[in-house]
Nucleic acid binder design. Sequence first.
DNA 1: AAGCCTTGTCAGGCGACCTGACCAGGGCAC
DNA 2: GTGCCCTGGTCAGGTCGCCTGACAAGGCTT
Lengths: 175, 175
Amino acid sequence: MTPGSKKTSTLAGKPTLPGGSARIPLTGLLDVALEAMLAEFRVELGAGEFSDIRPTHGCVFRFVKEDGMRLTDLAELASITKQSAGEIVDDLAERGYVKRIPDPEDRRAKLICLTGRGEEAQAHGFGLFAAVEKRWMERYGREKVEALRATLEEIAATEAPGAVPELARPELAHV
Amino acid sequence: MTPGSKKTSTLAGKPTLPGGSARIPLTGLLDVALEAMLAEFRVELGAGEFSDIRPTHGCVFRFVKEDGMRLTDLAELASITKQSAGEIVDDLAERGYVKRIPDPEDRRAKLICLTGRGEEAQAHGFGLFAAVEKRWMERYGREKVEALRATLEEIAATEAPGAVPELARPELAHV
DNA sequence: AAGCCTTGTCAGGCGACCTGACCAGGGCAC
DNA sequence: GTGCCCTGGTCAGGTCGCCTGACAAGGCTT
């Protein structure tokens, strides 16, 4: 395995305990699955038109609202400081994926919005994620992957309702 | 959500697509579940006797073999460079969790071994992981968590057989 | 208008990785 | 045996993604 294949969230698991009867911690399994999926995603993202998008940029595409969002709110959602968020947004702005427009309601604030190219990139990335998931259904069975998703959706809605808003509000799930 | 609650693997998901019908990428769900579990683990680890163990150290406890392991092999398993692995091992050695003993078969090499305290820490961490999983069974239902584990074990055995050796060799699973 | 919160930026620092260069020891070919 | 190349580990230096601290500009309350 090549270094640079992205860090594995450490402390995440441990194969065998001296006794021999050990189960691998669930965290280790989640980590392996996550990294494997992300690896496929990154390969495809890197091969396409939007290859200058780095993992760090993800928080913007992941959380920014359609009609723009303040830096402070973005930082809050992404669980990073506003300084870090600002840096990421700067970078994405230089690359033409987002722009800052003045917030009409507060002259201190700016709304971070995707540009046209930004929306293309978002849709592209989203499509890649869907493609990877489809491939995994073929690889492991549709039912298994769907059951996996269902359980994880329940967990995510409980553990991080802020990060997955529509799961926390079921009435929006069938729009 | 406080910054410092550990980075969320970015690029991992995105709630709603302009259209509205979006599914959150599986990566985003895996990420939320993983981070939530690790958060519980870290709180408990930080509260106990082994609070000086940092996430980075995990790769050692996760991968080191009972009878020792060469740095190069550890680095390979953990998907990091041997330089990075060396730094981590240094740190853990200063804290008394591992020691390097000369490899009898190759005078260039040293075997990285857990000390007594290291083994205690490993067992402790392992116990914490089991406790978190048990709590999740109570929270989400035993069957769901077990199904989750079963699917993830299959995925892990396929995607990263090296990192989860005994899953890749089913004959060892029932020792 | 005074004082106190916010919004976002500037400056500086740190941890966890990386690449490149290197030495000591091993494993051949000859 | 003596070159010669390969491998295990270390030293040096750099990058990236995040952090804390300090602060100016604008809003809100009294």
